[in-house]
Design a protein around this nucleic acid. Structure first.
Lengths: 223, 223
DNA sequence: GTCTATACCTGGATAGAC
DNA sequence: GTCTATCCAGGTATAGAC
């Protein structure tokens, strides 16, 4: 996200704002031009087409988001600490960037239409992850190791990873639905977010305990 | 979903197919007309506008889906049976209707744009649920009762409900992403679905156990 | 009720002057 | 590099004959 004030960057910033708010189809080149203080012709001069401009914007956004979520996660401590930190981080970041969520939602939704376009958003994520973590998958690895160390019961790392992502993301994705069906609910409120993090750590951590569960105290003593 | 063969119903069926495949914006009135074996003018004759036609289709779809998922859920048995049945039902139904998922995804995504339209898809769900369950919320109630009966530890019913929906829905919603990031993954394969159901029941059920967990055997003996 | 033909609008892209 | 003016495709909606 460059901060210079040349025309190209002004357009890029304007495009980011407009795309975030209206989505790819909803965004109008006219609106982007106005917000950047130029006219439509210049957008094409710099970026050739709406599609190309869009690609630039989305790669920047995903890259930025992935860094923001993963950057402050501990890798070496106990698994429970990792779990707590990841949930807290992820939930907070999701709550803070609702526009980004609907944006990814639009992308995933439309990536279903075109067969080859399906790869697009996925590939953007994959490449951003590789750029950050270099090939290996942080979540899978962390769970795998915790299992091997006997910190948690043997679970399928892939399924648990998916479940972990699921319980964090879902409330924000389904917000328009949930807040109508459960009329008292306010997903973005402080109360809900705080309670959610606690409930999730509690639920998942217990879910990872073996049948006879005094594991907790053993671990406390270890470290 | 009427089965008659008059023009109006033929249009409605054709519209359902086309909307499911292409979404609201992607669908072309021309395509609907062709599939119904009539011409564009007739669509407007019967339904006035694309928007009106679309509303008719979506209400039908949601109504149908909710019935399909909820109809074979036991209400009176033990909580673990309910959990198992719900997960199995829901996952199977989601796996069987991928078009419906992307459709709802589109709707939720676009419901974010217009402030007043936000209510639309939510309201459609709420009304469909009320039509089916008459005011009370099946999931919340079932969890609440299980807590009161001491079958599971005291959890917040709302949070657990959200988590339960989350872990079931997420893999299907995020499929385009997940299948690229985890390259071996095939969400719709028999293997994955079977494993997923088992992992989910296991994870959530353990997550609902109190600290000292011999609860299992007590219950087995009860029934 | 059903067709053909067409009006009319929106929005991305380009030509060409400066 | 930046502007104005314009083109053109794709899409909804309607007029009017049968």
């Amino acid at each position: 996200m460059p901060l210079r004030d040349n025309t190209e960057d002004r357009i890029l910033r304007a495009a980011t704002e407009v795309f975030l708010q209206h989505g790819k189809d909803g965004a109008r080149m006219q609106a982007i031009a106005e917000r950047a203080g130029v006219n439509k012709a210049l957008l094409h001069y710099y970026f050739r087409s709406k599609e190309k401009l869009y690609q630039r914007v989305i790669v920047n956004l995903v890259d930025h988001a992935i860094k923001a979520v993963l950057i402050s996660i501990p890798h070496d401590g106990r698994f429970r600490d990792f779990l707590t930190a990841f949930i807290s981080n992820y939930v907070d970041h999701l709550a803070a960037t609702p526009e980004l969520i609907r944006f990814v939602l639009w992308e995933v939704g439309s990536s279903w239409r075109d067969p080859e376009k399906a790869a697009t958003i996925g590939t953007i994520f994959k490449q951003a992850l590789e750029r950050y973590a270099g090939g290996r998958n942080l979540l899978l690895d962390t769970i795998q190791k915790a299992v091997e160390r006997g910190e948690i019961r043997p679970v399928d790392p892939l399924h648990f990873t998916i479940s972990l992502l699921a319980v964090c993301v879902y409330p924000f994705v389904a917000r328009p639905l949930l807040e109508v069906v459960f009329s008292e609910l306010d997903v973005l409120s402080e109360d809900f977010l705080k309670a959610r993090k606690q409930e999730l750590v509690e639920l998942l951590w217990r879910g990872l305990q073996p049948e006879a569960t005094n594991q907790l105290w053993v671990e406390e003593a270890q470290s």
